[in-house]
Design a protein around this nucleic acid. Sequence first.
DNA 1: CTATTTTTCGAAAACGTATTCGGAGGTATG
DNA 2: CATACCTCCGAATACGTTTTCGAAAAATAG
Lengths: 339, 339
Amino acid sequence: MVTIKMIAKSCGFSVATVSKALNGAADVSAETAERIRKAASEMGYLPNAAARSLKTSRSYNFGVLFEDDANLGLTHRFFSHILNGFKHRAEELGYDISFISDRVGGADFSYTEHARYRNFDGIVIASVDYTDHAVVDLVNSGIPVVTVDYVFDNCGSVLSDNVGGVRDLVTYAYRMGHRRIAFVHGEDTAVTRHRVASFCRTCRELGLEQPEEYLVPAIYMDPQTAGVATAKLLELPKPPSCILYPDDISYIGGMNEIERRGLSIPGDISVMGYDGIDVSQMFHPKMTTLRQDADRMGELAAEELVKAVEEGRGYIPGRIVVPGKLLEGETVAKLKVES
Amino acid sequence: MVTIKMIAKSCGFSVATVSKALNGAADVSAETAERIRKAASEMGYLPNAAARSLKTSRSYNFGVLFEDDANLGLTHRFFSHILNGFKHRAEELGYDISFISDRVGGADFSYTEHARYRNFDGIVIASVDYTDHAVVDLVNSGIPVVTVDYVFDNCGSVLSDNVGGVRDLVTYAYRMGHRRIAFVHGEDTAVTRHRVASFCRTCRELGLEQPEEYLVPAIYMDPQTAGVATAKLLELPKPPSCILYPDDISYIGGMNEIERRGLSIPGDISVMGYDGIDVSQMFHPKMTTLRQDADRMGELAAEELVKAVEEGRGYIPGRIVVPGKLLEGETVAKLKVES
DNA sequence: CTATTTTTCGAAAACGTATTCGGAGGTATG
DNA sequence: CATACCTCCGAATACGTTTTCGAAAAATAG
């Protein structure tokens, strides 16, 4: 391993000068800087991240916290895209990324301890139980944090436009002539509350009736409970003409229940998904859903985190809302408006 | 930040003794070790990874190289599961994981340079173009490497049992009475070659006719080309009764083409997928496919990599083949055997 | 030519840790 | 009682880098 010291010896300058030359300091003449850089490159010099980090207490490394109860983790469709976007943008901006876990070297560590141990410059949190004490502790650790799809008041956040998304879907169904729209929503989370609120508000503004039975809970990404919710809706005395699901996987569960009953989509009942995962656009009938721009969200999270890190104490936490895009498929029937 | 030095001052021992006590060295008495540990925990001491890494030149950090031309990267179904398994097992074994990219601090670095810069103890490579010079260079860098679904002779590897998988699928179709089986395979890679070889061999062993036209190329994960390949097969004078696709996404492309022609699955034609992604088991008809145990592969890669790292020069590269599991769905018809 | 400023460089200290090696004190051995 | 042997601890050094501060040399000003 070739070090700065060896370069110094090789070109007859001091360690200090070599370091400064390599870092482009102003107080080293152009020609010596050139000579040093040339020697460094010839000798195959590579800086040592550990030494640099030790000295500067900057690691140029971001920690990523991705967990979820279902242990889908990295395989989660939506969040794997977020991670993907985050990774690419962070790399462009000069940061590496590592995962934060609650184990270090085989021993139990809190997330915060892990982050301190590795000296992460910043942290992105997504897909976790935000009520978890360990997560809250991390948010309040003083290390710059950006959260995805959740807001803490002392750190930046990137949010999918859930309010706009649900509004757009409901409005779309309305324009297609639907007046009885139901919402199978996910379990109680901040995202769900936003969506439900938007759903209710949009219905009200459009003058739609919204019986309580049209709001049915299910579990995100779980076809099973979505099927049960669908059954409940279909057996209503006045069933909806259109059902909005919390995600595209739940949609599949609903679809199966619908077809099991001999009903057809969209002939007998219209349906809409959420997320816009790849397969949603491959199957027939093509799914009407709302694509969340998860890659973009990840990129913005990286940019926001760099801002938080580099602006230091002067940083004002940003709330970035990323709009989605309605993918018009073939699962919502055009109805003649009743009466 | 509380350091070893502060603990030393606080309990009246030397820095050396504190370090040794915290690392469980033998030459410190039980009671002083206890006193030191207690003080450390009370003061909220955390080791400094950078200092430790600098001193020991061990980072307890694994580098992960995940890239692919389609830029699916982390969102790739199969590989996101591999990463997931790898991550969990590596964390259990005491290692953190970071991504390797070809940029460091905003400048261009080769993968090898990046790995050296961060002083990764080991590296796992998956989902890359293995002919890429930069990848080959990394493999030969001297840093312990484990590859997934590819074999280099100087490093360990974890392989999905593609030979067994294809054999099982073809044999299954044969048992269901099929005698004309076609294989839509992915583009030319090591995995593809193994699969094609297994396909041909199995057909031969079963005494099946295998006209050249029954081997049709497509692109992995691309419904489009799979659809074209399917069309080609269906228009054959003697079309197959069963088609095997290279993955579940391609399967969907094939299915669409089949249904577009007014044919039904499995009434008119039988189909099989590969991978066993989650949605394959949600749709109707439920897909007959081969689930690759990608999570397990990731875990085994982590274990193998730890072995490579900790056994040092004495390490003998392992070839671990992970069997998949046939998921019997409803897409392969039971045929009466002709003649 | 002197005085002042600017440019260019290096010595030294520091970041937090691990490790080697020797010494002090005690205990067993003869 | 002398010797050998453990047990336990600390001083010192090193890992590779950045940064401060002062000094020497060169350039400019007066």
